[in-house]
Design a protein around this nucleic acid. Structure first.
Length: 154
DNA sequence: GCCAACGTTGGC
DNA sequence: GCCAACGTTGGC
């Protein structure tokens, strides 16, 4: 059982959008970055915990948690010519991009902003702090637990 | 099989 | 909207 941080632009797909899905379960698709794909395809497993992060918005922040309910399978959008995620170089035999299914688990009492994470001595080793621009990244158990605590503080 | 160019990401 | 970091691509 591992922990992850998934980034999403809230204008595109927010934690409330996930909570509003049938069975509060949605497909995490549209990943088109190789480093993120490799984590998704090779390491993310059913039952793993996910920190839901809002990126490319006014206050980038961890806003809640989710759970992986289905491990990697080929992202259908890469085969759909009318999709913005269409990839002409992908085929059913050789899919290039993958997705997982997530179930909403919790929304924090308050978002934990990136600026606060960067200033927290316990979170200095997070990939989020050390390397930006990675939309799927591993999280240590200690980091997971600390962030959950921060999110529950009023 | 080297390595420059490319596409994606996302904070600032 | 700039541009830095990364993995991958593809020309040679």
């Amino acid at each position: 059982m591992n922990y992850w941080l998934f980034k999403s632009e809230p204008d595109e797909y927010s934690i409330d959008d996930l909570a509003a899905e049938p069975a509060q379960t949605g497909r995490w698709d549209g990943i088109r970055n190789y480093q993120a794909r490799n984590f998704l395809r090779d390491r993310v497993a059913g039952g793993d915990g996910v920190l839901f992060y809002h990126s490319a918005c006014k206050v980038p922040a961890v806003v809640g948690t989710a759970e992986v309910v289905r491990a990697a399978y080929p992202d259908p959008a890469q085969f759909a010519p009318d999709s913005p995620y269409f990839d002409p170089k992908a085929s059913a035999e050789k899919p290039r991009w993958f997705c997982v299914d997530l179930r909403w688990r919790s929304k924090f009492m308050r978002p934990v902003p990136l600026a606060e994470i960067k200033a927290d001595p316990l979170l200095q080793e997070m990939v989020l702090v050390k390397q930006g621009r990675l939309s799927i990244q591993p999280v240590e158990r200690e980091e997971w637990e600390h962030l959950l605590q921060l999110g529950q503080k009023p």
